[in-house]
Amino acid sequence: MRLGLRVTTVAVIAVAVLVPFALLAVLVAGDWAPLHEGDASVTQAVHEWALRHPGWVDVSVWWTNIFAPWPLRAAALVLVIWLWRRRHRGAALWVVTTMAAGGILGALLKLLVERHRPSFLDPVARAAGFSFPSGHALNAALAAGVFVLVLLPIFRHRWPVWAAAAVVAGLTGLTRIVLGVHWTSDVVAGWLLGVAVVAATAAAFTHRGLLPVVEQGVDPGLAAATR
């Protein structure tokens, strides 16, 4: 793909995903009343449900610990080593760049926005640090994205791969709401930022359009290398 078209592709991604994220960030930072009230209403309703269903709280704790940022980064590192040993070093570098860029952006945004987490008299879980965006939702989206776009060429039937990625990212974000440690908008922002970073870096690293990358992965040659 020509440089101009690649830049255009990245710009389209930015508009389609980063604009909603930026708008959400502005509304959160500005303490927009309707958003705050909506977040509070959902959080309170989910918290009351969680208190009545301690078994699901235990499942949420189990899930959120397994798919926490550092275990996901460790899994991504294993993927990088696997790619590097098979001399697919461009894909390996893309995974490192995507996970690092997303993680750094998430940490910086937490410090910039300084949003406090939900607070309850009878919390079912606790978490430290600022709230926006959700680091669990962000890193789950990043990890799901890099694993799908790297491993896609290996699988003949690709929709189950995308479905599995959506389930991991989706449920990881939802557990943070169930546990009462994030507002709903924190989780949505984490998902949006994760998708934006994966899409933008994939478009920047490859010489193809975003649609072929989504269909064939970041390195289609990986299919032949694993046969």
Score class of each variant (00 low, 15 high):
Arg156Val: 10
Gly55Ile: 13
Phe132Cys: 11
Leu174Phe: 10
Ala200Asn: 01
Ser134Met: 11
Arg6Asp: 04
Val167Tyr: 05
Val148Cys: 05
Val146Asn: 03
Ala127Gln: 15
Leu210Asp: 03
Ser134Thr: 09
Asp122Trp: 11
Pro71Arg: 04
Leu149Asn: 09
Val187Pro: 08
Val7Lys: 15
Phe130Asp: 08
Phe120Pro: 00
Ala100His: 02
Val26Trp: 07
Arg89Pro: 02
Val161Leu: 14
Leu193Met: 04
Ala204Val: 03
Ile154Leu: 13
Arg6Val: 06
His207Gly: 04
Gly217Ser: 09
Val80Phe: 04
Trp32Gln: 07
Gln44Phe: 09
Arg158Asp: 08
Gly129Cys: 06
Ala169Gln: 08
Val19Asn: 07
Thr175Met: 05
Arg126Gly: 14
Phe147Thr: 15
Leu171Asn: 10
Ala16Asp: 01
Leu193Ile: 00
Gly170Lys: 01
Ser60Phe: 00
Gly129Leu: 06
Val59Phe: 12
Ala165Phe: 03
Val57Asn: 05
Gly209Gln: 05
Trp84Cys: 12
Ala16Tyr: 02
Val161Glu: 11
Leu77Tyr: 03
Gly30Ser: 12
Pro153Ala: 01
Leu152Pro: 15
Arg115Glu: 10
Ala137Glu: 01
Ala127Phe: 08
Ala169Gly: 12
Val213Glu: 00
Thr64Ile: 01
Leu152Ala: 02
Ala163Cys: 12
Gly106Gln: 11
Ser131Glu: 07
Leu121Ser: 14
Thr8Tyr: 02
Val26Ile: 13
Phe130Tyr: 13
Val26Gln: 05
Ala75Cys: 01
Phe130Pro: 00
Arg89Lys: 01
Val197His: 05
Leu149Arg: 05
Ala33Thr: 04
Ala50Val: 06
Ala125Pro: 03
Leu93Asp: 03
Ala199Ser: 06
Val188Gly: 03
Ser41Glu: 15
Phe21Ile: 02
Gly209Val: 02
Val198Met: 01
Val150Ile: 04
Asp58Met: 06
Arg2Gln: 13
Gly135Phe: 09
Ser134Gly: 05
Pro160His: 05
Leu149Ala: 11
Asp31Cys: 11
Val167Asn: 14
Ser60His: 00
Trp70Gln: 09
Val148Ser: 07
Val28Asn: 03
Arg73Gln: 10
Ala202Cys: 09
Pro54Val: 09
Gly129Phe: 07
His116Leu: 13
Leu210Pro: 11
Asp219Ser: 10
Pro160Lys: 06
Leu108Asn: 13
Leu193Trp: 04
Ala189Thr: 04
Arg52Ser: 11
Phe147Val: 15
Pro123Leu: 06
Val198Leu: 00
Ala140Ile: 10
Phe130Asn: 11
Gly106Ile: 09
Ile13Leu: 15
Ala16Pro: 00
Trp70Glu: 07
Val178Asn: 03
Gly194Ser: 08
Val10Arg: 00
Ala165Pro: 13
Ala140Ser: 13
Gly180Lys: 08
Val168Lys: 05
Ser119Asp: 08
Val42His: 01
Ala163Asp: 08
Leu174Ala: 12
Ala22Glu: 04
Ala127Pro: 09
Ser119Trp: 01
Ala200Arg: 01
Leu72Tyr: 04
Ala101Val: 12
Trp70Gly: 02
Gln216Pro: 08
Ala107Val: 00
His136Ile: 10
Leu171Ser: 09
Glu48Met: 10
Leu179Gln: 12
Val181Pro: 10
Ala225Ser: 15
Gly221Ser: 06
Phe120Thr: 00
Val195Thr: 14
Arg115Ser: 12
Leu105Pro: 06
Leu23Gln: 14
Gly102Val: 12
